[in-house]
Each structure stands twice: as structure tokens, then as C-alpha cells.
Simulated scan of single mutants.
Amino acid sequence: MKLVSIVIPFFNEQELIQSFFDRLTAVIHTQPYSFEFWFVNDGSTDQTQNKLEEIQAKDPRAQIIQLSRNFGHQSALCAGMEHAEGDLIITMDGDGQHPPELIPEMIRMAESGYDIVLTQRLDEKGQNLIKMGTSRLFYRVINWISDTQTLPGGADFRLLTRQVLDNLLAMPEYHRFLRGMVAWLGFKSVILPFVPAQRIAGKTKYSLKKMLRLASDAIFSFSMVPLYIGLSAGLFFLILAVVEVVYVLSFWIRGDITALEPGWSSLMFMLLIIGAVLMIILGFIGVYVGYIFQEVKHRPNYVIQKEIGQIHTRQNSNLTKK
């Protein structure tokens, strides 16, 4: 009987944990597979840990990984995946927006020969228009500047086979954009669309700051285009400078030097433009150097404070390493 690991990160979700778990177990109850649950407490400050421990005390299939602080959604997912022992690994959020009812279909698709089962959020009436617009813009930009195509509307609700997960964990990035990393691997995949449901309780913990950080990790981890933009802008203004030199020399050749009048405003304009281009280039370089600096320090993506349950770590797991 195949083992299916379900990895679920939580951050300050005390109101919905029990309801979500009841819904999840009701779905998998009829499935002819063994299941294990990896709950990752991503530094919650409420009663999330206590709620998870109550579930674990009743259901030995539940394993709890408590991180020492909030390391972020991607790191929390990695913590669970590095411990998962299943033949099939499913990652999902525990707020109810990723419907557990799709799990049987995801497993069926994996059994039919797919290595990766991706899910794609469909637009829903009443959804935040600003969030929808920025999401569409982000995916258009990242797919334009990157060689790796990321599924628009993609979610971290996916199924991976053991082979795919082992290769994913072998990628040592510190700044992790899992949707792009999974796409980069290139295994046989299929897309399962779904309409996101309402949260069971509480509010989303994915703030604007966290979304911008994820977008930054995606852009600077999967593309060198920002550097090429700066280089192209510098080349463009170099051509303009050559054109200006030729234009001024034409007055000298014609002997019409008196027609050359100093243009303070145009000079300042060019200086400001050139200065802006230089600052943009230096800014892009600085970001890449910063990413390199964080990579070479080899700090872990997360730190585990406590583990609860019959946890048997896989030999290829990195634990608190990258």
C-alpha cells in the first residue's frame, strides 16, 4: 500500500485547524492508501501549537514540526517536505481555500503516470480585483523574462512523486520560489483547475510585504533580464551621446560655430537621465550581489524548535540545512 504524505504549514490559524482536519480526514477516509500528515507550525504566536498537539494526541498519523520563528511559507513547506516519507507528497494550505476534495483526483492522476499534479486557481466572483490584477501582471512578467514558464494562477497545492521531490530537495537555493523550481525540473505534469473556497476562519497571513518578497525571489532567482535591461539602457544612451557628438561636429565642419548656444536645461536633462540609468544598473547589481551574499553564508532556510510524533527523518533530508 502506497504512503501519501500531506504537508500543511500553519501560521496563527488556531480558529480553523480542527475544522480543516475533520474535513481532510473525511476525504481520505475512503482512499486505499496509507496517509501521514506533516503539520508545520511556522512560528505561530497564538494557540496553533496546542491545537496541533491535541490532534496529534488523537491521531498518530499526524507529525508536528515547530519552527523557532516565522521563516515564511516557502521555508515551512520545505521543512515538511524534507521530512515526508511518502511515495506521493501533497502540499497544501490549511485555511480551507485548497479543497481537500481534490486529493483523490490528484492521486488518480499520479497513478495514471503524471509525476507532478499542479493546481490552478480560477477567477472567482467577488475576489479582490487589485490582488487579481497584480497576480496576472506578476505571472506575465515572470514568464516574459524567465526561461522557466510558471503556471498563471498556480498555487502551492500540488502533488509530487518521490522522484520529483528528491530532485527538488537537491536544489540548494536559499531564496525559494517553489512554483518556479517545480516547473524548472521539467517532469511530466498535468494541471487540475479549481475555484478557491472561502477561508474557514480568520484572515490571510500573506501580507503585501510577503507577496512582494516572493515576487522578488521569483524574478531575481529565475532571470538575468534586469541586468540586461540596465545594460541595454546604458547602450542606448551611449548611442545618443555618439549622435550628439556627430551633431556638434557638423557645426564645426560647416564653420557655423556661432549657431551653437549653451543649453543648460538640455544638459541637466541628459545628466539626470544618465545618472538615473547608472543608479538603476547599480541597484540591480546590488540586489544580485545581496542574493549571492545570502547564498554563500549557507544559513539554513529554517530552524526546528521541537518535533512531535513518530518522526523518522529520511536520509536525504537536509533538516535545518539548505
Rank of each mutant, 00 (worst) to 15 (best):
C78Y: 13
M109I: 10
L122F: 09
P99Y: 06
S223E: 06
G286Q: 13
V190Q: 11
P100Y: 00
L260V: 06
L260R: 00
K58M: 10
S44F: 01
I285P: 04
M270L: 09
K306T: 14
I89V: 06
D256S: 11
G86S: 04
A233Q: 08
H29N: 07
A110T: 03
V182W: 06
A84S: 11
L185T: 07
Y302L: 07
A62T: 05
Q31F: 07
D46E: 03
H29P: 05
L249E: 13
T91F: 00
K321D: 09
G126W: 13
A57V: 03
Q74R: 06
V287P: 02
L267R: 06
D156R: 07
V7M: 09
G180H: 07
V277S: 03
L102K: 00
G290Y: 15
N316V: 08
W184F: 13
I285M: 12
L151C: 05
L192C: 14
I17K: 06
E124W: 14
I145Q: 03
L249A: 15
R254S: 12
S207W: 09
K297R: 15
G113Y: 01
G80A: 05
R179C: 09
L272A: 14
L67S: 01
I8V: 15
E53Q: 09
F11Y: 15
T25S: 08
L52N: 02
H98S: 04
R158C: 06
G153R: 00
R61I: 12
I116Y: 05
L160F: 00
I281M: 15
A197K: 15
M132E: 15
D147R: 15
G234Q: 14
I219D: 01
G153M: 01
K125H: 13
R69N: 10
G263R: 06
L151V: 00
L52D: 03
P172H: 09
K58G: 07
M279C: 14
Q149A: 07
L235F: 13
S146C: 04
F293I: 15
E261H: 12
Q14M: 07
E307L: 12
W252V: 09
M81G: 00
T91G: 05
L192M: 12
F293A: 14
M268E: 11
E124D: 11
V27Y: 01
E307G: 00
S19A: 13
T48M: 03
V248S: 02
Q56V: 02
R136K: 10
D217V: 02
I281V: 15
E295P: 01
L271Q: 03
K2I: 12
L185F: 09
R140Y: 04
I130R: 13
D46V: 07
R23N: 15
I107Q: 05
